[in-house]
Design a protein around this nucleic acid. Structure first.
Length: 234
DNA sequence: CGCGTTTGACCGGCGC
DNA sequence: GCGCCGGTCAAACGCG
């Protein structure tokens, strides 16, 4: 793993408002030693993050309700969020409450990190609103997603799972290709996308989709003790 | 030989 | 209906 530094801004999406930061520790074990992500990744597996100072994270979960609503929370607005923010080393934190099927449409997670904007928080409010029209129109149910941005020399971070590349695509208005990976484990349908920011090739955006139904391949102890999975997986 | 990557073709959703 | 675009498939290829 490289020793490059990482920079982080958090973007998290929760189904329920009361799941937000005050309860985050219970299912979003951040980040003294950066024990994330909640999706798919083993708590101790993201070896590349040992030196992380910050990162970008976006989470989405499917919602059973049909109405589309969105609530944006500013980290500075509420004490508990301030506490969380400080624990994240000053990283910005944005939570969204949405009631919609398939809140994240293809590409929108990565759109979160477009550096066309100078900052993340207030710009996100406008962009989120603008995107809602598109989101409304998308009905296809998708797996929960988890997205984060890191500054790294390597494209594929070692998250403890074994991935097989099944496609690569150059997406419009970007210079760098997007790579598509699938978990090699049988019956595990977790996928991830990896791409570099066009505006800053040092930044790698990794998007996980789905939940692992097994423990990391390089951690034999966990595979012998499936009861521990609940602590690490969604 | 088995496994992973590459890459062009194909498919389906979406906007016009 | 048509074209664009992102995502996936699968055959060919490379490597250990």
């Amino acid at each position: 793993m490289s020793t490059t530094s990482h920079s982080i801004v958090h973007h998290s999406l929760f189904e329920e408002q009361d799941q937000m930061p005050t309860q985050m520790g219970s299912f979003f074990p951040f980040p003294t030693n950066l024990t994330f992500p909640p999706l798919g990744c083993h708590q101790s597996s993201l070896k590349g993050f040992s030196s992380i100072a910050s990162s970008s994270v976006a989470i989405s979960q499917e919602d059973s309700t049909s109405n589309l609503t969105e609530t944006l929370f500013s980290t500075t607005a509420q004490k508990s969020r301030e506490d969380l923010t400080s624990s994240l080393g000053g990283a910005q934190f944005l939570s969204l409450h949405r009631s919609s099927v398939n809140p994240w449409a293809p590409g929108e997670v990565t759109d979160c990190f477009s550096s066309k904007r100078s900052g993340f928080d207030d710009h996100h409010l406008g962009i989120s609103a603008m995107k809602m029209k598109k989101i409304k129109a998308r009905r296809k149910v998708r797996e929960p997603r988890f997205c984060f941005k890191t500054m790294s020399d390597v494209d594929v971070l070692d998250d403890g799972y074994k991935w097989r590349k099944y496609g690569q695509k150059v997406v419009k208005n970007t210079q760098n290709p997007r790579s598509y990976y699938r978990c090699t484990q049988d019956n595990c349908r977790v996928k991830k996308r990896v791409e570099r920011l066009a505006e800053d090739p040092r930044m790698v955006i990794t998007t996980y989709e789905g939940r692992h139904v097994h423990s990391p391949s390089n951690d034999p102890e966990d595979s012998q003790n499936p009861s521990q999975l609940g602590n690490f997986l969604w």
